[in-house]
Nucleic acid binder design. Structure first.
Lengths: 212, 212
DNA sequence: AATAAAAAGAGTAGAACTACTTATTTTAAT
DNA sequence: ATTAAAATAAGTAGTTCTACTCTTTTTATT
């Protein structure tokens, strides 16, 4: 009985590459190939894959939102995150959110099949690079509270507008709040995402796929 | 006589996807497969490809710097940019810098072979999506000076430090300049990259691969 | 019904950023 | 040798952001 694998990534080339890589594996069957989350969710009930290879950065939805959504509906599915984001913080958050594996697109791809088999059997799989990243981060930041709190809808909305280069007064006018309130949200975002200033906020928001 | 093609991209999956796609094309020969610019430059003299498929965002070098570098040494090589950046401004700058083709990773990949043949014969190839992007941007921004001036070393240095979340006073202290001078550079960067504020500056710097 | 979290708002104060203009010195290019 | 560009510095003025503390109202959750 072969393992059913689906992939979601907005780059056709990456999907093609995966296809080519897994074509030789007799015990792995590629049952789904999606470029966006709607497509995938519509097809999921019938396809029922065992393992999902998930890209984090996609135009419509971010993998961050997708993981809780998918695991809530299909608790038995195993998600392997396949992305180029190499932040220890983000990796930890994703594993916490329910991901069973993490592979870097920039790394060696020979272990994809191995990763699929491992998580298919209920284990966690991290590539060597990822393991190193995590251990290094543990060594360097002793007190690492880590896991970022979820952002509320309002916070996400304001983050998005900040990302679109609006100033606090502009945002206040746009969404009918007082400037002080917007500033408060802004400061809260700096704290929650552990950023020093707006620059750090934007960088993290991009990395975490919180903005479009 | 077949067209010799090389590809540089830091994602093995993308390289694999290209390989798979071009395997069926009898008149196209993949002669090089590089994950970073040093590797490529070392191999170029002997490999002598006709066409280079170039990813813009790579960890060590950015495609922006690479294009002038390559065309200066190998003027006959045709560069096709293959990336997910869909900014009209950036596309225009790259064509101006000497790129002969532009394809979006998020777009339909059926035309890669066609693009290679077209630029191989000295023509310019833009995918449909890219053409639409460019015409739309022409329609919307009437006075679009566009082409970004190159940044000086000092400007790049300060941009990098801004990206690393230093404030102007901190930068001034770090590189022994007056705060006012750093502020002047900062304002100049906003103008040159046509950004409204630091947020826009960071976004463009990332997109254009000006920071690490 | 009680507790917690989210949403909205505000005071004070200072730091940092943006805008526009001008000027000097050094370095590179025709 | 002349011109142009880059690097450096600064004035004035106004706007925006950051920091810390606090309050009220609404919405969920147990």
């Amino acid at each position: 009985m072969s393992i059913k694998v689906a992939i979601i990534d907005d780059h056709p080339l990456v999907r093609g590459g995966i296809n080519a890589l897994l074509g030789y594996e007799a015990d792995i069957e590629l049952t789904g190939n999606y470029s966006n989350s709607n497509q995938m969710l519509a097809d999921f009930r019938s396809a029922q894959p065992d393992v999902l290879l998930l890209d984090l950065q996609m135009p419509d939805t971010s993998g961050f939102e997708l993981i809780p959504l998918i695991t809530a509906t299909y608790p038995s599915i195993k998600i392997i995150v396949l992305t180029s984001i190499d932040s220890a913080l983000i990796i930890r958050n994703l594993l916490h959110a329910g991901a069973k594996g993490y592979l870097l697109k920039t790394g060696n791809q020979e272990h994809i099949a191995e990763a699929i088999r491992e998580v298919g059997q209920g284990r966690i799989f991290l590539s060597e690079e990822v393991k190193n990243l995590l251990t290094n981060s543990l060594l360097h930041h002793k007190t690492n509270l880590g896991f970022h709190k979820d952002l509320s809808d309002r916070e996400l909305q304001i983050l998005q507008l900040l990302f679109e280069e609006y100033t606090s007064p502009e945002i206040a006018e746009k969404i009918h709040l007082s400037v002080r309130t917007v500033e408060n949200y802004r400061l809260g975002l700096l704290q929650k995402l552990d950023a020093k200033n707006i620059t750090g906020l934007i960088k993290k928001a991009i990395m975490m796929g919180l903005v479009k």
